[in-house]
Design a protein around this nucleic acid. Structure first.
Lengths: 123, 123
DNA sequence: ACCGGACATCGATGCTTGTCAATACGATGT
DNA sequence: ACATCGTATTGACAAGCATCGATGTCCGGT
């Protein structure tokens, strides 16, 4: 990448390079802020974990149930739950011997908003 | 995971383990089907690429512009575009010397639907 | 026919990540 | 006190991934 500057088409009004509504598009900061959320969700196991938890009573679920829903080690499930929790997607509450994870609607709607904003225009 | 079977709470009606509305939740198949889309989007660079392309005129953008929008090698941008294209998120069209990528609204709305369906219930 | 520019592909490299077995921690019941 | 059960943590390993430099390919102009 020799050119560090971008705006001018090198010569005149060449047909390429309509200058991308950069104002309306996402900044690198924004992207780096949202990407971790998607990264946390971008795994089949974690995606299903969130789905199971969201489908649970009160939007929460006990780890003991989640463990049995997969053919994976308890350590692996625990790891995935930690990832989701660290990403801010799940809340964690210890209730007696058991631990319950609950979805954080704010976090999920943040992702939903992302696609409402960025995506859907007919043509 | 010693237990390969799941359904029975080992003893009686213990308070834990409300059995998760497994019918309503996402199957492993579904999760494995959607996760690749999220994986493709779960990178700051790719997320911004999609954003830039979506913000472009007609929901498309020339690679020449995209290259200049990042401090990354042309090879790297090309790689990311390929990932997005392979995931079915972008269309590719060669127009003269230049290549234009365009967003596939269907793919994006698939992701959007995912969060509409799974996410937002008040309490 | 040649050169130059726009993208793609290849091969290599260092970092991240999904998974497991083993172990540690903490609460409960006996 | 002790054994037990539910969950988290640690350490290790293989696989995946983001990035780069170098090279290849295709196209348009001279």
């Amino acid at each position: 990448m020799s050119r560090t500057e971008l705006p001018m088409p090198t010569d005149a009004g060449l047909a390429c390079c309509t200058p991308l509504a950069t104002g309306a598009a996402m900044s690198m900061q924004q992207a780096e802020q949202v990407a971790p959320l998607l990264k946390a969700l971008a795994d089949p196991v974690r995606l299903r974990l969130v789905s199971l938890i969201a489908a649970g009573a009160g939007g929460e679920a006990c780890v003991c149930d989640l463990n049995d829903a997969f053919e994976l080690t308890q350590a692996t499930i625990s790891h995935h739950l930690k990832v989701l929790h660290s990403a801010g997607l799940l809340d964690r509450e210890k209730r007696g011997v058991w631990v319950y994870y609950a979805v954080r609607p704010e976090a999920l709607s943040a992702v939903a908003n992302l696609f409402d904003t960025a995506a859907l225009q007919p043509a």
